[in-house]
Design a protein around this nucleic acid. Structure first.
Lengths: 227, 227, 227, 227
DNA sequence: CATGAATGAGAGTTCATTCAT
DNA sequence: GATGAATGAACTCTCATTCAT
């Protein structure tokens, strides 16, 4: 079971008192190997897409035989779940960084909202595969194969990524409920824009995703300023 | 080749003058059977999702051997394309009906915009698989396997479904360019809301898709009223 | 015109007395259509090879539906058999023409032997598919699917094509038995050279089929001159 | 990749120094199983011919599921290539043995030429399927599907099998170029005789392949003696 | 921990031939 | 005669997963 908590990147230093040092070391080694496999999976997935990235391919890239991966992950899906967790971590870091960078701070909270929302948008625009990842486990748009606790964890990571924007709205005087609704809308808008963009539907309307997003953001800021 | 026009649901009754009655009847029978297969495909797809719906499964449901489907469709993809075409037809009819229904007409064009946008939203909210269908041919969010002319045709059907909303905005005095951008945004927003809704991400934020959509629509109407 | 019907057995001007003119006409029409189908089959076979030429493809090229061909040929194999018969006819004509052309006649019988053998060789060198055809019915080098009478007929056509060479050898004073053996050898040599040529094995040895054949022919003529 | 060297029957025992004994053993086991599959393939191919020998049939005979073969061979073609490689190995051994056997040595080089050519001829006369094998990858007499390096390797094996005859001609004083041409001719003659023999065309001329071959060989030796 | 052979199911597609119409 | 839908069997190949070693 440590295996699955490890998926989420939690460390267990406190076990030091109960386990021998050897066990700790082995656990650390296993974690490193997990990450090696995830790296291979990410590479395969990014280069070959959801369908091209077979377990065999991932194993080959990681320098393992197919069966060996099952020592680290219970299934292919679990690999993707781990990948998604890591992806959300990166998203969080990117959003957070945008929220604490000087230019944003100066004109806060409008600046913060704009900067973090932009960072969120940019993250998925620049890494379309990370967006795919988010929908992989919902093949056919229908949830599947996630353990409830894993689902919860992933949701929390997502919530965390959006939190700075919600807080910025609150700081602008928007009631908590309205802020939450606006942030959900914002998220939906970003997803919609990017899905349409990736599938070529926006180009078809001769529009530019970035411009559309700016427009949305401006409207949101206007709403936030004088409700 | 009547096969490909049939994909798009065109009827051939008018050929009566040139073909023998027998040919016409046979063509009609073939069309009926095409639709039977599409029905089976839709059922398989809706129940089993994109991956479960194999050609064999579709054939079984339609009461055919696998090879027989190739008398009606050149490939599995063509079946899905036909399904998508028919789905867009239904969408168009639903949107059009909403745009010409009395209550909408009375308060036009605001009423028309609200009614048609609502109809668009409702269509995909009530038929989530139809939204999937639209993304099927863009596996991994990356276009694939459509003949350019078929792609064009499908795009036109989509454009047509959105046209009433664009016209309503124009009728409210919005410049064509801005109207086009707003309609693309609206489309993206709907898609985003529904994708998040279908994947359970909206419920997670304790929000209601319909309410969020109303909110978006109100803001859009406000923008349209006094730019 | 009896040509191809003869392939299939035997016909039959004498039926004129018993059948009505209509039946005769219908038979002629059928024969014309047979040839149309054979033409299509030849085209498909030459362009697409043995594997690419499906019944469907042949039917399409002939302007028929697949089933229709069965009104004219009992099987796909029979089509090929007919094609082979026609091919052997062409071979015979080409060999015969070479044997009666002035230059050959002048220096006969050496000239005749050289000219006809050359014509035989050239025929298959220039029309590799005709050689394939000859081996098609012996897939895996093992006879199959020929009715004995059809086999006999084809053999006779082949014999006829080689007869001028045998006669030339006899005219040079070679005993009948030896001449027959030499001609069989000659045939084998031609086939061997062309099979190796078509499969690229001769080019691999940096040799030229034509030169090798000339060499063989010279040796044969030398043997024939003073045994 | 040991797989490809294994195709060619090379052993890996010398790796003992670098690999553990276990790896060596496993490799040996794998090689045995490869040969088991090749045996099954040969059986299927010999009994059922080129078309009857499907992957499924081969797998069934080898006691495997179809997919299992792909652990040993990358494709069906690779199986046939391996079969052909092994066939050429046997041919080489048979030819070589004939060239070094006492009776041949005594009257060398005429005896050597006669003995090795005879061995070559006998090999394919006695194993007709091995001749088929050589032409399998040239479906419809038109090259296909060999990797260039594999093609090269197979060509070299063929060249090696013919080398003793070429050397014997050279030993008889024939210039290298002429010897090469004669050996190519000899090869073509053998192939021609056997193809016609296998397809029953020689019997039809009431000839005997062996006698025809002797006749050819005598003429060749006569040419070689006094050019 | 690691291997990699093996499974078993299944993928989409093609084919010659048949037969009701 | 002609159609073309339908069959049924076959095709090669891929996959995630298991498990004896």
């Amino acid at each position: 079971m440590e295996k699955s908590t490890a998926i989420l990147g939690e460390h267990t230093g406190t076990l030091l008192h109960f386990d021998g040092a050897r066990k700790v070391r082995e656990r650390a080694v296993a974690q490193v190997r997990r990450e090696l496999i995830m790296e291979a999976a990410r590479g395969a997935f990014f280069e070959l897409g959801l369908d091209g990235a077979s377990l065999r391919e991932i194993a080959k890239r990681a320098g393992y035989s197919p069966g060996a991966l099952y020592s680290y992950f219970a299934s292919k899906e679990e690999i993707y779940a781990a990948l998604l967790g890591e992806s959300l971590d990166r998203l969080n870091r990117q959003v957070e960084a945008a929220g604490t960078r000087p230019p944003a701070r100066k004109t806060a909270p409008q600046g913060t909202l704009r900067a973090t929302a932009q960072a969120f948008f940019d993250f998925y625009r620049d890494n379309p595969r990370d967006l795919d990842l988010g929908f992989y486990l919902f093949h056919g748009m229908q949830p599947m194969g996630l353990t409830p606790q894993l689902n919860k964890r992933l949701n929390e990571q997502l919530r965390a990524a959006l939190a700075p924007m919600r807080d910025a709205l609150a700081a602008l005087g928007m009631p908590a409920k309205a802020a939450q609704a606006e942030i959900t809308s914002l998220f939906a808008h970003i997803v919609g824009l990017l899905v349409l963009s990736h599938t070529g539907r926006i180009r078809m309307f001769k529009q530019d995703p970035k411009a559309l997003f700016d427009h949305y953001l401006n409207a949101l800021l206007a709403r936030a300023a004088k409700p």
